[in-house]
Design a protein around this nucleic acid. Structure first.
Length: 479
DNA sequence: TGAAATGTTGGGGCG
DNA sequence: ACGCCCCAACATTTC
């Protein structure tokens, strides 16, 4: 290891993988000595620094990536501290002439990275950034009038017209520096909880790392993809890919998903299978759309995209909010979802829509409260998707559900969890109830340790929401 | 990626 | 046999 090649820092962030990692591959292509670096600086993403569940995921992801790098004779250099100073001190310590990274798109990370790029360039460093986490850069897709899209369907149509590059192969090997800079320990990041070790449930529920992510995509395609169109709405079945947390931290990339799914479609020419695969890819599309919207409307994490909702009179209702958070609303499918989230860091997508509608419509609590709770409890928390999803539910976002589209949690339960299997898994108090009453236990006399009535009567909540939204609309129209 | 209210149709019971 | 009514099933409109 005495080659005289120049050294590159590969600043890893949410691209925690070796395959399809353009920053890494480019540096290898240039025959540079590679120093992979991860910097823990959560305050730079405030107020949306990784939440508690997200940190647990990150811990395991970093641990796995570190092991994979070791197998390659490399290392993952971990550092705590401000990103810019840390990079500068690493440059000083290693003599690196190159700093490569893959882009992030949130308001905070985007402006931080731009600033760092300028400042490193002024030091004479060759700085390059790449696209690793989106099929299409947010600025590559625009309407006929060159505006950003605000409606999903035309957005996705436009995306489908574009080329989708193949993912990069995992590099076999590359050059290492002669001496390594020092690294902090992963435990010094303190990503795992201490007092109650609530992370154990998450740890046993998920598998981490790049290899596992690709494996779970493969087994999803093999076992579930052909039935995805139907099964994805049934929360008691493993019908979804559950790939979202891996996508967030980049142990898998959307290009890899796109490419694998397209391959699968070629081998599975049944009409139903093809349709299902397209529906699955459309979900990847929603993620892209969310990044597109956040990039062009960076205020949306704290303000509604549709500005006419700016002063909507959401109610505070801390008691109801807490009941919702803890899965104690007395509405079975809502409580089941909220408890699944609390326990495993994940909630089935169909149920996310139901609990979000219940919070914003029946309880008239702000979408922002929901967004904050999800941010802290989801292992797949992603600012773009979280913001889009919650504004969709609250009716104030891009391509949002109109205010009168209110989910009835009883009907949703009966439709998508007809036997009550999902409810019984997460609300075991109700496991003796028959399917007939499982979604509306208040209709049957029982003595279970479960709220005898929902926090709000469903009819009353629905009527109140319709009234509130309608009144706000007319007030806006004639101020 | 909704649900409820309202409207329409047609089969069958029944005087 | 006929017309009336009921209501389920489906369609459309409204929130």
């Amino acid at each position: 290891m005495t080659e005289p090649g120049a050294t590159a820092l590969i600043w890893l962030r949410r691209d925690l993988r070796l395959a399809d990692n353009p920053a890494l591959s480019e540096a290898i292509q240039l025959k540079l000595n590679i120093i992979p670096v991860f910097i823990w600086a959560p305050e730079e993403e405030a107020p949306w620094q990784p939440g508690a569940a997200s940190r647990v995921w990150l811990h395991h992801e970093l641990s796995d990536l570190s092991a994979s790098l070791k197998e390659k004779g490399s290392r993952l250099i971990l550092r705590k501290g401000a990103s810019q100073e840390t990079l500068e001190s690493l440059i000083k310590a290693t003599g690196a002439k190159f700093v490569f990274w893959n882009r992030l798109y949130e308001p905070s990370t985007k402006s931080r990275d731009e600033k760092i790029k300028q400042s490193l360039k002024s030091l004479g460093i060759d700085v390059r950034s790449f696209n690793a986490s989106l099929l299409h850069e947010p600025w590559e897709v625009s309407t006929g009038q060159k505006n950003p899209y605000q409606v999903f369907t035309p957005y996705w149509k436009a995306c489908l017209q574009l080329e989708h590059p193949e993912p990069l192969k995992e590099p076999r090997d590359w050059s290492h520096p002669i001496t390594w800079p020092s690294s902090d320990s992963l435990s010094s990041f303190q990503l795992l909880p201490t007092q109650p070790r609530w992370d154990k449930e998450i740890e046993s529920d998920w598998k981490f790392g790049e290899r596992e992510a690709r494996q779970s995509l493969k087994s999803f395609l093999k076992s579930f993809a052909s039935q995805y169109e139907i099964n994805r709405d049934i929360p008691s079945t493993p019908g979804t890919s559950r790939i979202s947390p891996a996508l967030h931290f980049g142990s898998i990339s959307p290009r890899q998903i796109w490419s694998e799914t397209k391959k699968w479609m070629k081998d599975n020419p049944t009409a139903a299978g093809r349709r299902s695969a397209q529906v699955f890819l459309k979900e990847i599309g929603w993620r892209e759309f969310a990044h597109h919207v956040l990039f062009h409307f960076p205020h949306t994490p704290h303000k509604p995209l549709r500005s006419e909702f700016q002063n909507f009179p959401w109610k505070a209702q801390p008691k109801f909010l807490r009941a919702w958070q803890r899965g104690q609303t007395g509405v079975p499918i809502v409580d089941a979802g909220m408890r699944q989230l609390w326990k495993t860091g994940w909630m089935h997508n169909r149920v996310r829509m139901i609990v979000a509608s219940f919070l914003t419509k029946h309880l008239l609590i702000s979408w922002k409260e929901g967004a904050h709770w999800f941010w802290d409890t989801l292992v797949d928390a992603d600012l773009a998707s979280n913001t889009l999803g919650w504004q969709w539910a609250g009716g104030c976002g891009a391509d949002a559900a109109p205010y009168f589209r209110i989910f009835n949690p009883v009907l949703q339960g009966e439709k998508f969890d007809p036997e009550g299997a999902y409810v019984k898994t997460w609300v075991p108090e109700l496991k003796e109830l028959s399917p007939r009453f499982i979604h509306s236990p208040w209709n049957q006399v029982h003595s279970f340790d479960y709220p005898p009535q929902p926090v709000i009567q469903l009819q009353e909540g629905r009527d109140r929401a319709l009234e509130a939204f309608a009144e706000y609309k007319t007030k806006k129209a004639a101020p």
